[in-house]
Computed example of a mutant assay.
Amino acid sequence: MTSLDDLNLFALTVRHQGISAAAAATNMQRSKISRRLQALEHALGYQLLIRTTRHIELTEQGRWLYRQIESPLNTLQAATELMVERGTAPKGLMRIAIPPTLGVTEFFADTIERYISLYPQVQLEIEHEKSAIDLRRSNTDLQLLPGFIDSLHDDYVQQSLIQFPYTLVASPCYLSKKGRPKALAELADYDFLASRYTRSLMPECRNYRLFSDDLRLLHQLAKAGQGIAILPTSMIEEDLASGALSNIDCADQLTPPSISLIYPAQAYLPERTRLMVKMLRDNFAL
């Protein structure tokens, strides 16, 4: 009868590309691992490994067996680690990918502030990514993306979160020269200051005077009278109140963009990741 421990030692030997390396990783004697692997081969009736002086090679039967047991053993290991982790405060490193424009929003800043206050032993790394990334290959826990961008893999979870209120604005000086449009169809002759995300909201054939994902730059240029910008409402509330920027009425004809939460579909998410996903879902799910 085969032993789960022996199957795990076989998988570790394959992952570490050798018995010596597996012995170092498990703090076991090399000779003991070698005997256990021989016992596994005897029980199964197949040679699994071809041993050489420097490394190991898998036989055809060994490759087949490793494909069958790799995922279940990983799941068991993840479940065991999660049980231990749930008995303690969440800790460790969590990597999050976000679009550059999201970093300046009150929504995201408030979420991160709350998370790090509740879970001070978690270290966060926040990377700016403009498109969908392979979360597993980049060792990233989750990604936030504009709703019109799909994840790279069908087995990733993708959930729509809140729609962000955006406002179409320009300086009073610019509008006094160009006139105030009343409908989207009238905007063809205006200069636009756009990001890749707000550009998707507008009809085709706009005259883009500047295209940048730096919302602060778009904000500054809009106040300087260089064109019309679509900016997060929370970013320009003070400017609207002071008169530095003026709201353009036809903005209500635009559909606000949504944000998607993307993460690998795993049976056992690390506790630090599960808590972030739960916070985002509880507060911002559509």
Rank of each mutant, 00 (worst) to 15 (best):
P203V: 07
A194K: 08
K91E: 12
G103M: 05
S260V: 00
R35E: 09
G92D: 05
Q29P: 00
M94H: 03
R114H: 10
L187H: 05
T53L: 10
I116S: 07
A25L: 10
A22V: 02
I19M: 05
L142N: 04
L187E: 04
S160Y: 09
L275D: 10
L286T: 13
T80A: 13
N283T: 11
L254F: 10
Y66F: 15
L58N: 03
L37T: 01
H55L: 03
A244S: 15
Q121N: 13
Q123I: 10
T88R: 13
D134E: 12
A22E: 04
T13F: 02
A183W: 08
A43Q: 15
Y166V: 11
A285M: 12
L152D: 01
R274A: 14
N283L: 13
A170T: 04
S258L: 07
L161A: 09
E237Y: 00
T140L: 07
K130A: 07
S260N: 13
S117V: 00
D213Q: 07
T52R: 11
E85H: 01
W64V: 10
L231R: 09
E129Y: 06
I33Y: 04
Y268F: 14
A194S: 14
S34L: 13
E106V: 13
R86C: 05
H128C: 10
K178I: 04
R274Q: 13
L269C: 02
E186G: 00
P172N: 02
A89W: 06
L73E: 03
V157D: 09
H219N: 15
L76C: 01
G225W: 10
T167C: 11
Q158V: 10
E85R: 10
G147D: 15
A244N: 15
S31C: 01
P232N: 09
M28T: 08
A97M: 00
I33A: 05
I126H: 06
F164Y: 12
D252H: 14
Q220R: 14
I33F: 03
G45R: 12
Y263A: 01
R63H: 09
R137M: 12
S212W: 01
A194T: 15
P257W: 03
A11F: 13
L193Y: 08
T105Q: 12
N74R: 15
L37Q: 01
F211D: 08
K178V: 02
T273N: 04
T88S: 07
Q17R: 14
V104Q: 08
Y46L: 09
I98S: 09
L210Q: 11
Q77T: 14
Q226E: 14
H153P: 02
Y174E: 06
T111L: 12
T2Y: 00
T26A: 08
F164K: 10
M202Q: 11
P181N: 10
S258M: 07
Q17W: 03
T75C: 00
F10Q: 01
S260F: 00
F284A: 07
A23G: 12
T140F: 03
R136Q: 11
R206I: 15
R137V: 05
L144D: 08
Q159R: 12
A222F: 02
F107V: 05
P100L: 04
C205S: 14
H16R: 07
L102E: 01
F192L: 12
D155P: 01
I262W: 02
E125Y: 06
N283R: 15
T198G: 06
G103R: 09
E238P: 09
E238H: 13
L135V: 08
R86G: 00
Q61G: 00
R67S: 12
Q123G: 03
L65E: 08
R30C: 07
